[in-house]
Simulated scan of single mutants.
Amino acid sequence: MSYSIIGFGAVGQALARAFARKNIDVIVASRRAPETLMQQARAIGPTVVPRTLRDAIASDTIFLAVPFWEHREVAKQITTWQGKTIIDTTNAFGVPVEDLQGQPSSAVVAKAFTGARFVKGFNHLPAAVLAADPNVNGGSRVVFLSSDDKDAVAPVAVLAEQLGFAPIALGPLKDGGSLVQARGNTWAELIFKDLVKFK
């Protein structure tokens, strides 16, 4: 299984730190040339490898960590996303509600990635918290996952556990996605909830 993170701002780097902590290889890419990401990537760890956007898209599982509307530019890179899993970490705070046409922001993003297995996740924590060790006082920091494809959630949950998090499935995007979205000037109920699961 190959992994990549598209977007190397605060959230992309936070996710890269999670992979580096567990020595799992991950490609990172952005609009910038790979060499411009090299210094930050090296500072995070040797398993974080800058590549082109094309290289990142070739991965099996792709974290989408770009500003909300930039998802459309990423989605245009190939005609079908069949066989790939997209993990949407975006938030639509500041995006007018009417621009989303009454849908959860995750449903809008999902539509752009034709054929992909699509999971909303890893978006409810501030980047600084997401970047921190998820092992907290003997428990594991929670990440919420939501998808209209039940089969897509299980492998993402396994990855979340490999990265040290405790995944909690919230159901389909219209229900679970709505609990972890931002749109207009409002944040949904579970945004910023820093929860820890104990065994």
Rank of each mutant, 00 (worst) to 15 (best):
M1N: 10
Y3K: 04
I6E: 03
I6W: 04
I6M: 01
G7P: 00
F8P: 03
G12C: 11
G12W: 11
G12Y: 14
A16K: 10
A16G: 14
R17P: 04
A18V: 06
A18T: 06
R21E: 14
R21V: 05
K22D: 11
N23F: 01
I24Y: 02
I24L: 11
I24N: 08
D25V: 12
I27M: 04
V28D: 10
A29S: 05
A29G: 11
S30W: 09
R31D: 08
R31Y: 08
R32D: 15
E35A: 11
E35Y: 15
E35I: 12
L37C: 13
Q40K: 15
A41G: 03
A43P: 02
P46D: 06
V48E: 08
V48D: 04
V49R: 15
V49H: 13
P50I: 07
P50Y: 04
L53N: 12
R54S: 14
D55C: 05
A56T: 03
A56P: 03
I57V: 14
A58M: 12
S59W: 09
T61R: 13
T61Q: 02
F63D: 05
L64C: 00
L64V: 03
A65M: 07
A65I: 04
F68R: 07
W69F: 15
E70Y: 14
R72Y: 09
V74F: 00
A75G: 07
A75Y: 08
K76A: 14
Q77N: 11
I78H: 06
I78A: 02
T79P: 13
W81N: 03
Q82Y: 08
K84Y: 13
I87K: 09
D88W: 02
A92R: 00
A92N: 05
V95Q: 09
V95W: 06
V95N: 02
P96Q: 09
V97Y: 07
E98M: 11
L100P: 02
L100R: 09
Q101E: 10
G102D: 01
Q103K: 15
S106M: 07
A107N: 01
V108H: 06
V109W: 05
A110L: 01
K111I: 06
A112M: 10
G115L: 10
G115E: 10
V119S: 08
V119I: 12
G121F: 07
G121L: 13
G121Y: 13
F122P: 00
N123V: 02
N123S: 04
L125H: 02
P126Q: 11
A127W: 01
A128P: 11
A128F: 14
V129Y: 08
L130S: 09
A131K: 06
D133F: 13
P134N: 03
N137W: 02
N137A: 12
G139D: 05
G139V: 02
S140P: 06
R141C: 06
L145M: 05
S146R: 04
V158Q: 13
L159D: 02
Q162K: 15
Q162P: 00
L163Y: 05
L163H: 09
A169D: 15
L170A: 07
L170V: 09
L170C: 07
K174P: 07
G176S: 08
G176L: 09
G176K: 03
S178L: 11
Q181K: 10
Q181Y: 02
A182Q: 15
A182L: 09
G184T: 11
N185D: 14
A188W: 04
A188C: 05
E189I: 13
L190Q: 01
K193L: 11
D194P: 06
